[in-house]
Amino acid sequence: MFKLHYKLERRAIGLTLAIIGAASIGGIVEIAPLFTIAETVEAAPDMRVYTPLELAGRNIYMREGCYACHSQMIRTLKDDVDRYGHYSLAVESKYDHPMLWGSKRTGPDIARLGGKYSDEWHVRHLINPRDVVPVSIMPAYGWLMERTLRMDDLSSQLAAQRAVGVPYTGEMIANAAADAYGQANPDSNAAAAVAERYGEATNVRTFDGDAQRLTEMDALVAYLQILGNLIDVNQKTAAAETE
């Protein structure tokens, strides 16, 4: 059936090769140097990876298409910095597979949202944005509160992240589900291990206000609260300037 005996004659092949030749150069020239850039700029040894709960929250953020309206990239423009905080550094999205810089601000930039509002504010806002911001046009995400967070695949999520270069340890991968549970249940036995593995600064709280259940709301709020807080950005730039 797939008879390939028509000779694929020379002109058509030549045209194809010429197209590939002309079209590939620009991309290679622009992208290739970015893979060496890591050696020369910005190393951030203190930067931590996302906890399993935050990673799950990030996946929900992607699933709901939040990036369509919220950017996570503060430009080096004065009004951007005055409005949203310190401009975004390349290193801050180093573990973001894929990046979520976004291209449109139908809502505000949220690169430095973490810690700006309380967990309770976020939960209320996600359940119905207009309860908190009357003129908001953001969709309501009330059902996040009803959905139990999927835990069975957390270890393999972390493993896939490690496969693309995020430095998760074997221990982190093995305990992913327990850590997710522990991070949202400060009173449980699992809580201490989270801080141990991911650092003392990790938020360990009942994000959605309900310790009974681990919901998608827990995960999403945990993610939103870490935005911009993976490294201490002011200390980072100060260090870079003295060097």
């Binding site: 999205s93 894929p98 695949d153 693309v164």
Partner: peptide, 15 residues
Amino acid sequence: KSHSLFSGVQDALTE
């Protein structure tokens, strides 16, 4: 679900 091979700046430019 899959996780993109690229991250951060490289991913942004590739995208």
